[in-house]
Amino acid sequence: MKSLQTLAFYLLVLVIVVVSVFPFYYAILTSFKTGTSLFEVDYWPTSFSLSNYYSVFQQGEFLRNILNSVFVATMTVALALLMAVTASYALARVRFRGRGLLLMTILAVSMFPQIAVLSGLFEMIRFIGIYNTPWALILSYTIFTLPFTVWVLTTFMRDLPIEIEEAAIVDGATPWQIITKVFLPLMWPALVTTGLLAFIGAWNEFLFALTFTSSNETRTVPVAISLLSGATQYETPWGIIMAASVLVTVPIIILVLIFQRKIVAGLTAGGVKG
């Protein structure tokens, strides 16, 4: 019985892994193919050609685009977390009138379809004078990262027990000290999780990135991928697109592998025992 359960469990794990990874595996497979063999179905590697990877770096400035993406996504996350940690402390732990309304308003911000704010945001960005700079993207991305981070962090912070804060208040700690000394160490799992999700959101965003930049030097990876092209207007360069996708997905996977130690560490650090 016990071993049967274990078997079922590992079977489930296997299914989850296969379903998640297979399309990516298929992308890797495709990235090694060229020409007509792209149109043939294979389950195992049949050819190994790096020419698609070579093409990715030949067309445009892919390395530069990756760096742009890293910069934009990191700054977006840093700004969002900075604003969200303080704001969610205020929203979760301090009683004041209109708190529910404010939370609703923040939520409302993420209700507007991207396409509808596009032209207004475009005007705003040109008005501030940051068109075609990474800052245009960092600013516009807060529209979807900020409400989300604030909400998730508020929920987590609200669930932390009263006692941990009480002791600090008795000791005469300021609100800022309470956030940094008391809450921050406890919130690692939530911070890492939301930070990661916001990072990926910013990393993957396409519509704003296409609209608010106009040169290869400022563009981010998704736009760069959409710019990869075949020999003609009608040709889709599957091999090259897949190669580029593999290249941009690898950093994310590394990031997850690094940070999941943090997730675990945040848990074992204790204190969340309530």
């Binding site: 296409l210 106009s214 736009v223 959409s226 710019l227 092209s229 075949g230 207007q233």
Partner: peptide
């Protein structure tokens, strides 16, 4: 040159 995605709709 400012290159754009090859999709004409885009």
């Amino acid at each position: 040159v400012v290159p754009m995605p090859s999709s004409t709709t885009d």
